[in-house]
Write a protein that binds this DNA or RNA. Structure first.
Lengths: 109, 109
DNA sequence: ATTATTAATCGTAATATTGCAATATAATAA
DNA sequence: TTATTATATTGCAATATTACGATTAATAAT
């Protein structure tokens, strides 16, 4: 065990969970915030900005890339990262649909 | 290792990540969806609805309770669960603020 | 009192995640 | 060619997560 039983859930449930899981680490939040903040590509200053070792950052970037949340373009010796706007919009819709579930009329016992 | 270096991140980054992490499992998504759907308290049918063993569900409920996302009220022999609306609103605001970061004018290389 | 019901907790196995040192790779610069 | 620079990959240690059987605790029903 230690392995999630994805088969028993709907694909929507699995998708929401997968996205949330990737957002479930402060380093990845910091990376995304920085990418939004500078509003252009980042070419490798993420290690300094975030404050973790280079291999660790590289690993977090990989997870963000796996879900297509960010893109990396090779630029001379370095790689430039930026948000994939299309994917980000999808994620926004996906999570908003979930967050907007309304239980305000819940009759709590 | 295996342990997140929370000290180096802002409390906002840690909070977003903590919430996202809890939402990062399909069973917990399923539990929340069910609580919203039936729009009242659930008294223990979650094990059947979700399809995992009782101790496993109990554990997932615990994590949701740890973040105050759900409440459990004892009702005779069973326990009734429902969404904590106040907390849910907070989470909505927190995540929306993050999701609404706009990079549409990003100059990607 | 005994038994059934319900949910939490304990213990444990399997797997995943986090983080980094060391190394590899790839592209330019000297 | 030989550095130099920037990023990725590998390997590993420490810890966390997922899942469930067994047990416990608390009340309800008989």
């Amino acid at each position: 065990m230690g392995v999630t039983k994805s088969e028993i859930f709907t694909s929507e449930q699995n998708t929401i969970a997968k996205v949330a899981k990737v957002l479930g680490h402060p380093a990845r939040i910091a990376i995304l915030q920085h990418l939004f903040k500078i509003n252009t590509c980042v070419c490798g200053d993420l290690v300094e900005v975030v404050g973790l070792a280079q291999p660790t950052i590289s690993q977090h970037l990989k997870e963000l890339k796996n879900l297509d949340i960010i893109q990396g373009n090779i630029e001379a010796t370095s790689v430039c990262y930026c948000i994939n706007q299309e994917k980000w919009s999808e994620i926004k819709i996906l999570l908003n649909n979930f967050l907007n579930l309304d239980g305000s009329s819940n009759n709590c016992c």
